[in-house]
């Protein structure tokens, strides 16, 4: 087993039960690498997850404390947890695209507005893959899924000039980045910055699903095909990328430690009231 896994993860859960060829392990490893490179110990991090491939495969892999929230609402749980925990504890969450950008988007936006100190890693497999492969809120237009047999026709969060990161920035998030799981150290560096931001950080990390997405959208389960497809559609934040759609990657917004963090704000507010009225 990998030295990082030995150091930080539970042997019972590693290797995970993800499909062979799945990109989730690459993404998971990047998060653990970032934690390691920051010199954090298992006791420094509380690891939260949602539901779906991303949530289920990463739940309770962390040797320290873990929780798996209800679908889409782990951010609301993390808000309460943030108030209760000492400020130096890190809350890191690995959640799916449906969890963050679908069912849980309201909660995500409000965490960004409040600037609650947490690092949300959105592990995006381009739809609902653990239920068999239905389209989601980042599925590129035109691609077939089990619930878009004639092609995905809905506008999504990452096309036609829209970017979900833009919405989160406007809402008040203080660190935002996007990297695919196929990218290297630059992605790890971004996750490190996300963790170091005392506020709401989100890293959007698309990763290849070889089993459901690749089979329907690309007509093959050969991992190399979807990996190639990912590479072809990856560009930097400043590039236009391929005509049909692109994973526009890089650090989208870094306003780390520029706004008051929510739990600190509420604690300071309470201390102030106690001073005023005691």
């Amino acid at each position: 087993m990998d030295y990082l896994a030995t150091k930080y993860l539970r042997p019972r859960k590693i290797p995970s039960t993800a499909c062979s060829g799945c990109g989730l392990g690459q993404a998971h490893k990047k998060v653990v690498m970032a934690i390691d490179e920051l010199g954090l110990a298992t006791g420094d991090v509380i690891w939260g997850t949602g539901i779906g491939c991303a949530g289920r495969q990463t739940f309770n892999t962390w040797k320290g404390d873990n929780f798996a929230g209800t679908h889409g609402r782990a951010y609301a749980i993390a808000t309460g947890l943030r108030i209760a925990l000492p400020p130096d504890k890190k809350i890191i969450m690995t959640v799916g695209d449906g969890d963050a950008f679908g069912i849980g988007f309201l909660h995500l936006l409000n965490c960004a507005r409040r600037n609650v100190d947490m690092t949300v890693i959105v592990l995006d497999n381009l739809g609902y893959q653990s239920t068999g492969g239905q389209y989601g809120w980042t599925t590129p237009r035109g691609y077939r899924t089990d619930s878009s047999p004639y092609g995905m026709y809905e506008p999504n969060w990452t096309q036609d000039g829209r970017d979900v990161l833009n919405i989160l920035r406007e809402a008040g998030a203080t660190f935002l980045a996007r990297y695919t799981s196929l990218q290297g150290q630059e992605a790890v560096e971004a996750i490190k910055k996300a963790i170091l931001n005392k506020g709401f950080s989100l890293v959007h990390m698309p990763y290849p699903c070889v089993t459901n997405f690749a089979e329907r959208a690309l007509g093959t389960r050969k991992p190399v095909e979807i990996y190639k497809w990912f590479m072809e559609h990856t560009c930097s934040m400043h590039e236009k990328g391929p005509a049909d759609f692109a994973f526009r990657t890089g650090i989208y917004y870094d306003a780390s430690n520029s706004r008051p963090e929510f739990a600190e704000l509420v604690k300071g507010w309470v201390a102030d009231i106690q001073r005023r009225y005691s």
């Binding site: 929780f67 929230g69 209800t70 609402r73 609301a76 749980i77 993390a78 808000t79 309460g80 947890l81 943030r82 108030i83 209760a84 925990l85 309201l106 909660h107 409000n110 509420v266 604690k267 309470v270």
Partner: peptide
């Protein structure tokens, strides 16, 4: 601490998180 939540779902989830953290 008093937190006004964006809906009742959030309200009870915040309570869960607080309780999970020992409050």
């Amino acid at each position: 601490y008093y937190v006004q939540a964006e809906d009742e779902l959030t309200a009870l989830h915040i309570c869960i998180g607080g309780s999970l953290g020992g409050l």
